[in-house]
């Protein structure tokens, strides 16, 4: 009797959420795997043709997809470096004893809140008008021109804007890490004659490993999945030079109506993200030092 009552309460507390979760996340995920083995245009009246592994074989020869995969890797690697370098630098600056550090922290975090879509539009204007203006005035036209029109530079523009968005976010993670380092440890090293740079490399960096794990995880997965900024800043152009993974999948499914093939891409996308993030967490976890 008591046990039955217990089960009853368990169900009342958990079932509503788990039902919604199952319907919205789990069921579509499973159906998605099924769809990936069919050729289908998404129209209910048209037949779904089972074609085994054909979609996955076709992936390997799809030049636009492979290019998009390469661009995504390049984008992610560059972004992980720039976002974390900027975020860590910001964190070191705002944890110094300066009076205006709090105000600066507040300002540096701002872009993250605005949201990728709107940031992209803001920067579209900055590249279009402000960059060209600076180029005209300073004569540095080889650096300050509209990056968005240039096939090689458009991807850097994306890295640039993504860094602007995310640096303040990982800064918060690094701040938490830095504040967790006991002052005595740094002080002891200073007394032992370690220089500022040595203290940073030998003490701060190793003790920040947990913060690195989190920040790398966040930037890797956010970077790999980028879509909103991609859409509003470059729209994938010029000439598909910035069509990253997520956008390629969207276009394949909803643009060209290749539902089965596009879904196969989406499954591969999931496998890659899961593999990368799990490996990364595994590696950096091993490097963390115990206090």
């Amino acid at each position: 009797m008591a046990n039955r009552k217990k089960v009853g309460w368990y169900l009342i507390f958990t079932v509503p959420l788990l039902l919604i979760f199952t319907l919205i996340v789990l069921v579509p995920f499973v159906i998605g795997i099924y769809y990936a083995f069919f050729q289908w245009d998404g129209i209910g009246a048209n037949p779904m043709v089972f074609n085994g592994l054909d979609n996955f074989v076709r992936l390997m020869e799809d030049e636009r997809f492979l290019r998009s995969a390469w661009l995504t890797v390049l984008f992610t690697v560059l972004s992980v470096i720039t976002v974390n370098a900027a975020g860590l630098a910001f964190a070191l600056l705002v944890t110094s004893k300066l009076k205006l550090a709090n105000l600066a922290r507040t300002m540096l975090f701002m872009p993250y809140l605005i949201g990728g879509l709107i940031l992209g539009y803001i920067w579209q204007f900055v590249f279009l008008d402000v960059f060209t203006l600076i180029g005209d005035v300073t004569g540095l036209e080889s650096i300050f021109f509209n990056w968005l029109n240039n096939e090689d530079f458009a991807l850097f523009a994306l890295v640039f804007v993504f860094t602007w968005q995310m640096a303040g976010y990982v800064m918060i993670v690094y701040i938490a890490g830095i504040q967790g380092i006991p002052g005595e440890v740094i002080e002891a090293a200073r007394i032992d004659g370690a220089s500022g740079w040595q203290r940073f490399l030998r003490i701060t960096v190793p003790l920040l490993m947990p913060a690195f794990t989190i920040s790398l995880f966040l930037t890797l997965s956010y970077g790999f999945k980028i879509y909103d900024v991609n859409l509003s800043l470059t729209g994938g152009g010029p000439a598909n030079a910035t069509e990253l993974f997520a956008m390629n999948i969207y276009n394949e499914i909803f643009g060209y109506g290749n539902y089965g093939y596009g879904q196969a891409k989406a499954i591969v996308f999931f496998v890659i993200i899961a593999a990368i993030t799990l490996t990364q967490v595994y590696i950096t976890k091993k490097k963390e030092v115990e206090m």
Partner: peptide, 10 residues
């Protein structure tokens, strides 16, 4: 770990 793009169509 599942990205939105993986389940959006289904």
């Amino acid at each position: 770990l599942i990205p939105f793009q993986t389940i959006m169509m289904p």
